[in-house]
């Protein structure tokens, strides 16, 4: 019974995450306002990050972050440690992804502000019709 509930929750969470990614894609593709597109982009990027962390999660108890509690570990400590931790590789990839995502988001926000200064609008349909 426990196995079935765990499996259901696991698959349900996958569907929720993928639906959020779909929402982000919808916002980027359909909404005309530039700032709305940027908000959708941040939602898409953050959900992709949660997705990656979720791949490294383990359904065991006790579960701990991959931080060792001693500087000179013995063999028993290491075996105990290996049985309790989450995967350290996805967080290491995500931590840079967050900072780079934010740098890129800030750059496009600046570009949107500059576009508003020059053209007086944030509507991507109007900007795409401008010539010269």
């Amino acid at each position: 019974m426990d196995e079935v509930i765990l499996r259901f929750l696991w698959i349900y969470t996958w569907f929720v995450l993928i639906a959020t990614i779909g929402l982000g894609l919808y916002g980027i593709a359909v909404k005309p306002n530039m700032l709305k597109k940027i908000i959708s982009l941040t939602i898409l990027g953050d959900t992709a990050n949660v997705f990656m962390i979720y791949v490294g999660y383990r359904a065991v108890y006790p579960i701990k972050p991959p931080v060792l509690w001693t500087m000179n570990p013995s063999k028993e400590v290491l075996e105990n440690f290996a049985s309790q931790i989450t995967d350290p590789v996805p967080p290491a990839l995500v931590i840079t992804a967050i900072v780079i995502n934010m740098a890129i988001t800030i750059l496009i926000t600046f570009l949107a502000i500059q576009a508003y200064r020059l053209y007086g609008t944030l509507d991507s349909r109007k900007i795409s019709k401008l010539r010269g």
Partner: peptide, 23 residues
């Protein structure tokens, strides 16, 4: 496997050798 109960070998490698000098 769903849900995951064991850790992947690459992550296990990093976790075991980062502070381990002689074991």
């Amino acid at each position: 496997p769903i849900p995951l109960t064991s850790i992947r070998p690459l992550g296990l490698f990093y976790a075991l050798f980062m502070a381990n000098r002689n074991i």
